[in-house]
Design a protein around this nucleic acid. Structure first.
Lengths: 158, 158
DNA sequence: CGTGAAACATTAGCGGC
DNA sequence: GCCGCTAATGTTTCACG
């Protein structure tokens, strides 16, 4: 981005595309009171500068049979924790597990927090037993299941 | 949806649109080896049947100044917890707080888990003090901050 | 499911403020 | 610099085979 600031129009573009990622450039231009070509140029700039990470369709997990969601907090082996090796080993392995849709290193009394999306309790159990517990870096693990989705948005204020 | 099953082509469509929500119908048709019109009919069916919840642009929170992310677990007032009133009051209020991007009712020793996205610690502090702690239903609150994003995907296996 | 045609959208080049 | 016009090219969409 040539200048490091977003102006009001850029923010409106981001807001609209967060709400509807398939908005046509023409409709978007109208919403932000611009003609299509400068609008498209701004969108491209926002994409290239990394403000827009990507465009996705959000699929309903329940509809495709992923009816169980869990948060799992993990503690890593104490002797390995300071050595950077086990942290990045675990981080690398997490990338290959399709059940894990989110993973963060955390402050507080856990090391990692995972969000896990699976078919049912049987699948969760084998994920937990065969993948998480078997991992050499993992010493402790606590799971909670989501009972109800209250709010889930991808839209952030701009 | 007329039949309750997704065939192999529907699954491929969902997979492609999860990876790129702005794929043109023409390119999508080519990827799933269909011509554009039946491809579009399938996409519309998937949208209408709720398999596709919506299309969004994912904006990088750090780029727009939301540099702090926290998970907050909440316990509700014991006497109000069984009465359905305070649960749904809290759930309703959460919808109006833009800092909260996710909220789930949970099993285990917390009632709700929130994911909160804010500018900095000062903003987090005022959110926690002025909104969460002030809420009549909330009796206890524990926060952890994310130190590093290891994985964050919206794509689920179909 | 695929074809074809009309309507519509994207995008690059250029001139103007 | 950033806007908007134009015009060529590409895409969406729907009636029909």
């Amino acid at each position: 981005m040539s200048q490091n600031e977003l102006d009001r129009t850029d923010r409106r573009i981001l807001a609209e595309l967060q709400r509807n990622g398939r908005l046509s450039n023409q409709d978007l231009a109208e919403k932000v009171s611009l003609s299509p070509s400068p609008c498209l140029r701004r969108v491209r700039r926002l994409e290239e500068a990394g403000y827009i990470r990507n465009y996705v369709a959000l699929v309903d997990p329940e509809k495709v049979g992923l009816k169980l969601m869990a948060y799992v907090s993990i503690r890593l082996n104490k002797v390995l924790r300071s050595s950077h090796a086990s942290m990045s080993d675990f981080a690398r392995d997490v990338q290959h597990w399709p059940e894990v849709v989110e993973c963060y290193a955390m402050s507080g009394d856990m090391d990692y927090l995972l969000r896990v999306q699976v078919e049912d309790l049987a699948r969760f159990s084998s994920f937990a037993m065969d993948k998480l517990m078997q991992h050499p870096a993992v010493v402790d693990m606590r799971s909670s299941f989501t009972l109800q989705r209250i709010k889930e948005i991808t839209e952030i204020p701009v």
